[in-house]
Design a protein around this nucleic acid. Sequence first.
DNA 1: GCCTAAACCTTTAAGCTTGAAATATACTGA
DNA 2: TCAGTATATTTCAAGCTTAAAGGTTTAGGC
Lengths: 155, 155
Amino acid sequence: MSAPNPRPDAGPDSKARLRLWLKLLKATRTVESGLRENLRTEFASTLPRFDVMSALARNAGGLKMSELSGLLKVSNGNVTGIIERLVEDGHVLREPVPGDRRANRVRLTRKGEEEFTRQAARHEAWVDDLLGALDADEARTITATLDRILTEGKS
Amino acid sequence: MSAPNPRPDAGPDSKARLRLWLKLLKATRTVESGLRENLRTEFASTLPRFDVMSALARNAGGLKMSELSGLLKVSNGNVTGIIERLVEDGHVLREPVPGDRRANRVRLTRKGEEEFTRQAARHEAWVDDLLGALDADEARTITATLDRILTEGKS
DNA sequence: GCCTAAACCTTTAAGCTTGAAATATACTGA
DNA sequence: TCAGTATATTTCAAGCTTAAAGGTTTAGGC
């Protein structure tokens, strides 16, 4: 009489999960907003650009466009535009992939590496400040729990 | 010798906080992406539109544009465009504010209310599913901890 | 070799987002 | 009154984002 269908409707814990989702969203947007503001005023840059440079910094050999969009979980067309602007800035370089004329490999220039090093140091300090209400143990605990959303994803 | 400056650099817990931030971002984007996809395919709508309708549903008397952008923590120009499209859809109504010809009050139409009711039920079920890896207690714990990021924000 | 499917990437259209400038209205204090 | 300031909103330019469509190139049967 109570739950006729397997999973078309919300379960008994749905309210707690809904509240978590709203809080998650608000917290993320608050931090994002702070970071965006800082990137804009201190480096005249943006969060998407920083994310791309961060991915490239972790992969010194460069990445294909498709690897980049896969890592960042954004659409492929999206990456095209961001890279375009990073190339204009001289932070990123496109080079052909030997043996596959469809693909491009993209990597940081020397200038891009230096710029990213500066930005990454400040970025870490900003995050440290924005999440300063939580101590290291709390941070690790939430990190682990959030990870289960990603790894135990249903359907 | 170790920490010459008060807070220009990252503190000792900064790595844990940085990892938390990256996880927070990834989890949020994953859930957002699922919700966006569902809203698109089931309702031909978007997350920003849902958010606006949700705010209006909670305020039956309507909201001024500035109240709306304040609640949603987005720029005022942003709300203008979203409302514009919701008005086209017949979901939202603009009306003058008596005594202040600068302001508009905005509220759901009957059609908008009915549509939101349908969407909200599905939305709750989607969230329930996307966050299904966590039980109610875990959800409440993280919610409370995340809240401290918002309420104990520094600087 | 040839042909189809797949992979890689860009382009496009539509919409979201911001910060800043522009408009219009309201208020406040000489 | 009237100037100056504050408030409410829109407009604008730039950039981000997606999904879908388009163009190339590669890979796999046959």
